[in-house]
C-alpha cells in the first residue's frame, strides 16, 4: 500500500509546513519562538501517542496496516522532537550554555524533556533494517520498549511546564493511559 504510506507521510509533514509558511508570512503571532516551541512539542507528543496506537488498533481490529506505518510515525515523533530541541537550543536560548546547563540541572520539566529526547535518539537510530538485523529482534524489542517511559516522561514534561491550565496535558495523559491499558488487557 505505497499510497497509504505516501499519504500519511504528507499528512505528518503538514504541521511542519504550516510552521514554515507561518514563519515566512509573519503569521506566528506576537511571540513566534514560543509558538514554534509549543507547536513542535505538541506534535512530538501527538506522534508518540499515534505511534503507540498501532498495536492496540491491531489487537482490536486485527488489521495489519497500522503496524506497517509504525516506524514512519515513530520517526516523525523523533523529527518533531528534534525540531523542539533545536528550537530551545537555538531560537530560545541561542546557545547560552550556562542558561541551558542551569535549566537541565535545576528545572525538572526541562530535565524530563531532555531525558525523553536523549532516550528517543537510539530508538530512531536503530529503526533502519540493517541495525535492526544486526542487534537481533529480541534486543530490538527490548530497546524499543523504552517508548513507554519516553511517552510517560514526555507527558509529565508538558504537565509540569504549563502555568495553570492542565487541560491539554491531561488529555494526553488520558489518551496515553487508555492506550497502555488496552495493551495490558490483551496481554492477560
Amino acid at each position: 500500500m505505497p499510497w497509504l504510506k505516501v499519504g500519511v507521510f504528507l499528512l505528518a509533514l503538514l504541521p511542519f509546513i504550516k510552521l514554515i509558511l507561518g514563519f515566512y508570512q509573519d503569521d506566528l503571532g506576537a511571540n513566534p519562538i514560543e509558538k514554534i516551541t509549543h507547536t513542535t512539542g505538541f506534535w512530538t507528543l501527538s506522534f508518540l501517542l499515534i505511534t503507540l496506537t498501532a498495536t492496540p488498533l491491531r489487537l482490536i481490529t486485527h488489521w495489519s496496516w497500522p503496524i506497517r506505518l509504525r516506524r514512519m510515525l515513530g520517526l516523525f515523533a523523533f523529527f518533531y522532537a528534534c525540531l523542539h530541541f533545536l528550537t530551545y537550543l537555538i531560537l530560545d536560548q541561542f546557545f547560552d550554555a550556562a542558561a541551558i546547563i542551569e535549566d537541565i540541572s535545576k528545572r525538572p520539566y526541562i530535565t524530563l524533556g531532555f531525558t525523553a529526547f536523549v532516550l528517543l535518539t537510539p530508538l530512531a537510530i536503530s529503526s533502519n533494517d540493517t541495525i535492526t538485523r544486526k542487534i537481533g529482534s529480541k534486543n530490538w524489542r527490548r530497546l524499543h520498549s523504552l517508548i513507554y517511559p519516553i511517552a510517560i516522561v514526555g507527558v509529565i514534561h508538558f504537565a509540569w511546564l504549563v502555568k495553570k491550565d492542565l487541560s491539554t496535558p491531561l488529555m494526553f495523559a488520558g489518551l496515553l493511559s487508555t492506550l497502555l491499558l488496552i495493551r495490558l488487557f490483551y496481554r492477560r
Binding site: 506576537a30 520539566y109 511546564l161
Partner: peptide
Amino acid sequence: RWSQAKERRI
C-alpha cells in the same frame, strides 16, 4: 519552575 533572570521583549 523557571528562571526570571532574563526576558524576551516581544
